[in-house]
Computed example of a mutant assay.
Amino acid sequence: MSSMSIPEPQRRSIPWILWMIWKNRNMILYSDTQESLSHQLQQAIEEARLWHEVNTNSSDTDIDQGLLGAKKKWEPPLAGSVKCSVHSNWRNAVLHSGVAYIVRDYQGNVLHHSRDAITSSPNRLTAELRCLIWTLRSMKDLGYQNLVVGSDSKEAIEAVRTPKDWPRYRSDLTEITHLLTLFRSVTFETESMVSNQIAREIARSVLRDGRFNSYLALGGPPWLHQRILREATAFCS
């Protein structure tokens, strides 16, 4: 880590890379699953960057948009709307997928969060679309009308926006299109892995910790309290 021949962002990421290797080892031993190497590396780099920004009090002059317009940090909805961050933790075509959402208001306060396990999906996009169906049904049951849906699945958002271009997923997209008519307004936003980290962590805990019982709760999960608080205060600073 002291070698100046290695770029600083890479040196800062080394502890997170080691941590990802350890977590992947536990997943292989206890869940018979594992993340791809490229996914682990990307997540380690983004976690290290986020930690560095928070702990060095960096200014907001950095670029807030990632690749393809994905937001690098969580941003709140406008007053009068809520933002629902969603994620489906798909591993392969055999295992269940963990799904989760977390709903926050314009001040970053958590209103609800939920997680569940859905049956196996043939690919990641199918799992993401099924997660959206599950989420939209829940949002309707909870009485939300003005909704911003944030997802780090660019493909899922593109499919929802132009369903005719995705005929293979016609059944799920038709159901999503119908559900959207039940709300006053629904806007979709593309998130980065970092800006959607809370939903990702909740969804990941389903398979990682064997939590296959669904639940709905007020507020956010206690084990993510500090991260949620950090995101809520970041956009006010």
Score class of each variant (00 low, 15 high):
23 K>P: 00
24 N>W: 02
30 Y>G: 02
30 Y>F: 15
31 S>Y: 00
33 T>W: 00
34 Q>R: 12
36 S>T: 14
36 S>R: 12
36 S>D: 09
37 L>P: 02
38 S>T: 10
39 H>K: 13
39 H>M: 07
39 H>V: 08
41 L>W: 07
43 Q>G: 02
44 A>F: 03
45 I>M: 15
45 I>G: 09
47 E>N: 13
50 L>A: 09
51 W>T: 01
51 W>E: 04
51 W>S: 04
52 H>P: 03
52 H>Y: 15
53 E>S: 12
54 V>I: 14
55 N>M: 13
56 T>C: 08
57 N>W: 03
57 N>L: 11
60 D>T: 13
62 D>G: 12
63 I>S: 12
63 I>G: 08
71 K>C: 09
71 K>G: 08
72 K>V: 04
73 K>L: 05
74 W>Y: 07
76 P>V: 02
78 L>T: 07
81 S>P: 00
84 C>V: 14
86 V>I: 15
87 H>V: 02
88 S>E: 01
90 W>R: 05
90 W>P: 02
92 N>P: 04
94 V>N: 12
95 L>T: 12
96 H>E: 08
98 G>H: 02
100 A>H: 01
103 V>P: 02
104 R>C: 10
104 R>M: 06
106 Y>N: 13
107 Q>G: 01
110 V>Y: 04
111 L>Y: 02
111 L>Q: 11
113 H>C: 01
114 S>I: 00
115 R>C: 04
115 R>F: 06
116 D>E: 06
117 A>S: 15
121 S>G: 01
123 N>Q: 03
124 R>D: 10
127 A>T: 03
127 A>V: 02
132 L>G: 05
132 L>E: 05
133 I>K: 10
134 W>D: 10
135 T>V: 15
136 L>I: 08
136 L>P: 05
137 R>L: 12
139 M>S: 09
139 M>F: 03
140 K>D: 12
141 D>S: 15
142 L>H: 13
143 G>L: 13
145 Q>P: 05
147 L>A: 07
147 L>M: 14
147 L>Y: 05
151 S>L: 15
152 D>E: 14
153 S>E: 07
156 A>Q: 08
156 A>N: 11
156 A>F: 09
158 E>M: 08
158 E>V: 01
159 A>M: 05
159 A>L: 08
159 A>H: 06
160 V>M: 08
